[in-house]
Each structure stands twice: as C-alpha cells, then as structure tokens.
C-alpha cells in the first residue's frame, strides 16, 4: 500500500461479504441438483424444436441474479416462416 493509499482507504471487505452471501445463497439452493438453467434451456428448446426448425447456434441464453429474483432469458432467432414444420 502506498502512502497515498493510506489516506484514501476504501472498505472493500463489506462488498466481498455481500457478494459471497448472495452467491452462496444461490449455490446452496442448487447443490445436489443439476444446473436448473441448463435443464430449462434444454426442455424449452425441445418444445420449440417440435414446431420450428431452430438453429442452435443462434440461441442466446442469459441468466441474471439480483437479490431475491433470478431471470432466465432465452432468445431464439426464428427462421423465415418457411421453416414451419407440418
């Protein structure tokens, strides 16, 4: 730590503590189960693939966690109407 740093201390430990508490609450809930986001993604894609030909390369999955809520965003690019099955 430089002399300059001595006068401009930032308390980073509370940030570490908060990040850990949030993260571990989620990880403990998931322990023993396989990755929920991965399962949901697979099953949702399977349902859609029954009706529409989808390009797996063009599927975007975004998982975000904030406090008490989690959001799972699955972005699927629909091909031109031609791909409709049946």
């Amino acid at each position: 730590m430089s002399i300059f740093g001595f006068f401009t201390r930032t308390r980073t430990a509370p940030v570490a503590r908060e990040r850990l508490q949030l993260l571990l609450a989620h990880e403990r809930a998931l322990s023993g189960k396989s990755d929920l986001a991965a399962i949901l993604q697979e099953e949702i894609l399977a349902v859609i693939a029954k009706h529409i030909a989808i390009d797996r390369e063009k599927v975007k999955v975004k998982l975000d966690r904030d406090g008490t809520i989690s959001t799972l965003e699955i972005d699927i690019e629909m091909p031109e109407a031609v791909a409709l099955k049946n």
Partner: peptide, 12 residues
C-alpha cells in the same frame, strides 16, 4: 475494512 473479518467468514 480491506479484508473479510473473522465474524464475516463465521457468519457465512
């Protein structure tokens, strides 16, 4: 406040 305290780790 630069390092997690004993109490922080114990609580977590």
């Amino acid at each position: 406040g630069e390092m997690l305290k004993v109490e922080d780790v114990l609580e977590i």
